[in-house]
């Protein structure tokens, strides 16, 4: 077997959207109170990374950034077949925006090796920005394929299909390459028993665990703390306001002409935001 591809997958632990999580006064999410899970979008990235490994050979390394409990999702990636994982955990990272996050991840990638492929989820369910992947690619100076819904490799190049409005593009890219994977890619296969078995064995042996799950900090990767966290973030959440619970409180529209009813509904529900002006494709 040749050395194979050096594949990285970036994963994040996010609050479980099924549970009601509180917010800190500064508008960031109170991660202590929230139930946690692997960002659902990252499941597609993980599948893509594992697919690349199984098809073209190599090694998959998962990288996450977050407080120590984020190790849970790294263990989860190991259950699915990831070989090794890194957790960048550092208090000074708190309140990092996407730019500061991308900087920190850039330092991690520089620290651990030379990637051939980097897979990211399209976006996270807590941030919903879809920015970290491209910002990281910019830092690394790499080409990128965002919204990737399928790919294969030929002669060392990645042939990918990416979604665009009302269609798709076929692109051919050189490696190293960063790919953000759309949720129309293949869903993550179920964890394997052998993966689960491996994780249970690691969980019993802290020394063995450290060989496969590395917890690292900013100093170790040589990152400038002033460029991370609140300090290194050019944006802040100035304030938030509740817009009310969705569901359960239906606004009824009745007793008028159809014309008036529809006008009322459009105004009340901002339905027009779903309508693309007719000058576009049709």
């Amino acid at each position: 077997m040749s050395a194979g591809l050096n594949i990285y997958v970036l994963v994040k632990q996010v609050p479980d959207t099924g549970s009601k999580a509180g917010l800190n006064p500064d508008g960031t999410i109170d991660r202590a109170k929230a139930k946690r899970m692997l960002n659902p979008f990252d499941r597609f990235a993980l599948q893509a990374a594992l697919h690349a490994k199984r098809t073209y050979g190599g090694k998959v390394t998962a990288i996450s950034m977050g407080p120590p409990p984020a190790v849970e999702i790294l263990l989860e990636t190991l259950e699915h077949g990831v070989d090794e994982a890194y957790l960048l955990s550092d208090r000074r990272l708190a309140a990092s925006d996407t730019l500061a996050t991308a900087y920190a991840l850039y330092k991690v990638l520089n620290f651990i090796g030379k990637p051939d492929l980097i897979f990211c989820g399209l976006q996270t369910t807590d941030g919903d920005t879809a920015q970290v992947g491209p910002q990281l690619a910019e830092r690394l100076g790499l080409p990128q394929v965002t919204y990737c819904e399928d790919f294969h490799m030929e002669d060392g190049k990645v042939h990918a299909r990416r979604i665009i409005e009302g269609g798709y593009q076929k692109v051919v890219a050189e490696t190293p390459l960063l790919i953000t994977v759309a949720n129309s890619y293949h869903p993550l296969e179920y964890k394997s028993f052998r993966g689960a078995y491996r994780v249970r064995r690691l969980a019993r042996d802290q020394e063995e665990m450290k060989k496969f799950i590395h917890t690292i900090d900013l100093d170790l990767v040589g990152a400038d703390p002033d460029r991370t966290g609140l300090k290194g973030s050019p944006t802040i959440v100035a304030w938030t306001e509740k817009v009310g619970e969705l569901g359960g409180s239906c606004v009824m529209h009745e007793g008028q002409s159809a014309h008036e009813l529809i006008q009322e509904v459009i105004l009340a529900s901002a339905l027009n935001q779903f309508l693309v002006p007719s000058s576009s494709t049709k």
Partner: peptide, 9 residues
């Protein structure tokens, strides 16, 4: 005793 619980299997 090592005891491994496998839920979901």
């Amino acid at each position: 005793v090592t005891i491994d619980l496998f839920t979901g299997f």
